[in-house]
Design a protein around this nucleic acid. Structure first.
Lengths: 151, 151
DNA sequence: TTCCGTGCAAACAATTTGCAATAGA
DNA sequence: TCTATTGCAAATTGTTTGCACGGAA
C-alpha cells in the first residue's frame, strides 16, 4: 500500500478515489478497468512492466484483459498521467508522468535501479550544445550490471 | 565500399578476406553464410539492424535466411567480433565490437547519431561510485529528438 | 440513447528453436 | 568422416487491432 502523503498524479497526495477523479479530470471515462489500472499504478508507485501492472490490476478487477491494460496505458500516456520507458531487451516499462527519474536496468537480473536525475544533466546539456540532439532522459533506461550481480 | 585503411576488427585495416580469416582466428567455422554476414557488417561499418544486415548479406549470399543472421550475430558477439545495442522501441542493433561508441536514436525519424564516449564517462564513474551499478554504455542507446526533427 | 470502451481472438513484429539435410575441418 | 551449421517452419514474446457486445455519460 502506498504510504499516505506520497506524491502521486500532478504532485498531489494520493487518495483512494484519486484514480477515478484523475481520469475524469483529464477527460477520460472512469470505467472499472481503467480505474483498476490507474489504482494499481498509483499503489505500486514505481516503474513497472505491462505484465506486472496487469497482474496488480487484476487483483482489483479480476478478468481484466491485458489488451485493455495496453490501451489504458496508452490513454494515460496521451493525457499526461503516465509515461513509458524503453528498457533494452525486456518489455517497456510504465510509470506515473512527472516521475521522470532515469532508471538503470540490470542486464542480468532485470532489477530496476533509480538514478538521480542530476547524474545526466551534464550529458543532456552537452548533447544539446554539441549536436543539437535533445535527449529525453525519462524515455530510456541505462543498462549494465547491478551491484548484486557484479562478480 | 569501406575505404582502405579504415579500422575494422581488432583495429586492423579491413581487407577482402578479413571476414573468413577473422572467423577462423576466433575459432569459428568460416561458412559462406557467416562470411557473408561478417563481410556485410565490415562493409557497412556502422550500427545496423538485423533486418538491414540480412538485406546486405543477401546481396553477397542470396537465399541466406534471417534466422542464420541472428545465429551468426550471436556467435560473433560471443567471440568478441560484434556487439549489440538496444535501441528503444525499434529492433536491436548490431555493430563491430571495439566500436563502443554510444549512440543516440531519434524517437521521430529513427536516425542513429554517434555520441562521443567521453560524454558519459562521468556518468559511468558516478554510478559505479554511488550505487555500485556498472553501466555498459555500449549496450544501450540514448533517446530523444535529433536536430533535424526538432521544431 | 449513443458512442466509448471492453473482452476476445487474431494479427503483428522481433527473435529463438527443433529438426532433418548439408557442408566445413 | 563427423560434428557444426544451415534452411525451414513453427514456437515465443511483447504489443496492437478488428469486431460485436456492454456499460458510462
Amino acid at each position: 500500500m502506498r504510504p499516505e502523503g506520497t506524491k502521486a498524479i500532478d504532485g498531489r497526495p494520493w487518495a483512494p478515489d484519486e484514480a477515478a477523479d484523475a481520469l475524469r479530470a483529464h477527460g477520460c471515462r472512469a470505467t472499472r478497468p481503467r480505474v483498476a489500472v490507474l489504482s494499481a499504478l498509483l499503489e505500486h508507485g514505481g516503474t513497472i512492466s505491462a505484465a506486472e501492472l496487469t497482474a496488480l490490476a487484476q487483483e482489483i478487477e479480476p478478468g481484466l484483459h491485458e489488451a485493455t491494460v495496453y490501451r489504458t496505458v496508452n490513454v494515460l500516456t496521451e493525457v499526461g498521467i503516465a509515461s513509458h520507458v524503453h528498457a533494452g531487451h525486456g518489455p517497456s516499462l510504465v510509470r506515473l508522468a512527472g516521475d521522470e527519474r532515469l532508471v538503470a536496468v540490470c542486464e542480468n537480473c532485470r532489477a530496476i535501479v533509480p538514478v538521480p536525475i542530476g547524474a545526466v544533466s551534464d550529458l543532456v546539456d552537452g548533447m544539446a550544445r554539441q549536436t543539437g540532439f535533445a535527449l529525453e532522459p525519462g524515455h530510456f533506461a541505462l543498462e549494465g550490471v547491478c551491484a548484486e550481480c557484479a562478480p
